[in-house]
């Protein structure tokens, strides 16, 4: 599997899952533009690590919740490189509140960063891929179809992102652009501390049939595959990376009952 000569943009690529994806793509030969919002130091560190792998790296600041900033970012990419081969729509944020406490501001903040950003980035990216094809991978979460405490806004935004991924896959297929999503369960990152209460983390350890929590590299491995030519016939899918959590929940709960019975 080679991504030699490809140019990738990873939104939110400075930390966590985005960083793992950026490094994985670089390890397969891609040059990477690392988008960040508030942590330049982390983005620069990621860029340095990409360069240590022998690939080229750029960092670019943009709040993907702001359409004008997305335009500025793609204007820069268009002017400097004139092309883009891979878009990873990874940047995410969210307000963790129960449904009854969600206000319009919290809802819009979450939807704009997590779902609308894919729309706007994909529209701009597709123009830079036109005539040459490309890959778009969005990063989702099991919260798109499961209900976790205080995760409603993010979960709904991820459901929208997955639906949009399907539409993009169909509508961009004639341009040779493959679009897919990767959905992970709770991933061991700094962000997890912010979004997930302690109880859920313990549960994730307990109910993962694979025996450990998902780590960023698990997600990055699948993303890299979806960016390869080997994945050409996979379109509009959401690939779940959860160590079996979503299919093994009930069996493990039963096992626990037996152990305690």
């Amino acid at each position: 599997m080679s991504l030699e000569g490809k140019l990738a943009l990873v939104t939110g690529g400075g930390r966590g899952i985005g960083k793992a994806i950026a490094l994985k793509l670089a390890s397969h030969g891609a040059d990477v533009i690392v988008n960040f919002f508030r942590r330049r130091d982390a983005a620069q560190k990621t860029a340095n690590e990409i360069e240590a792998l022998g690939a080229k790296a750029e960092i670019i600041r943009a709040n993907v919740g702001d359409p004008a900033k997305i335009d500025e970012m793609f204007d820069m990419i268009g002017n400097k490189f004139g092309r883009l081969d891979i878009l990873i729509s990874n940047a995410a944020s969210g307000v963790g509140r129960p449904v009854m406490d969600l206000d319009i501001k919290a809802w819009e903040w979450t939807m704009n960063i997590n779902a609308r950003a894919l729309l706007l980035c994909a529209q701009r990216a597709a123009k830079l891929m036109d005539g040459r094809g490309g890959k778009v991978v969005s990063i989702s979460s099991l919260g798109s179809f499961l209900a976790w405490p205080t995760y409603a806004a993010v979960g709904v935004s991820k459901a929208a992102l997955e639906a949009l991924t399907r539409y993009l896959a169909i509508e961009l297929a004639p341009q040779g652009i493959c679009v897919n999503a990767v959905a992970a369960s709770a991933v061991e990152t700094e962000a997890l501390k912010f979004y997930v209460k302690e109880g859920l983390v313990k549960d994730s350890y307990h109910v993962t049939p694979a025996g450990r929590m998902v780590i960023p590299e698990d997600v990055a491995n699948v993303v890299a595959f979806l960016c390869s030519e080997e994945a050409f016939m996979i379109r509009g899918q959401t690939i779940i990376v959860d160590g079996g959590t979503s299919v093994g929940l009930l069996s493990l709960a039963g096992k626990e009952d037996n152990e305690h019975g």
Binding site: F37, R38, R39, R40, D41, N63, V95, K105, A106, W109
Partner: peptide, 22 residues
């Protein structure tokens, strides 16, 4: 609320082109 604080930090960062670490 916490979102107001984040939005204020972001707006000030963008207005002055500076960074305010968390």
């Amino acid at each position: 609320d916490s979102l107001d604080v984040v939005q204020a930090l972001v707006a000030v960062e963008e207005a002055f082109e500076i960074e305010i670490p968390d």
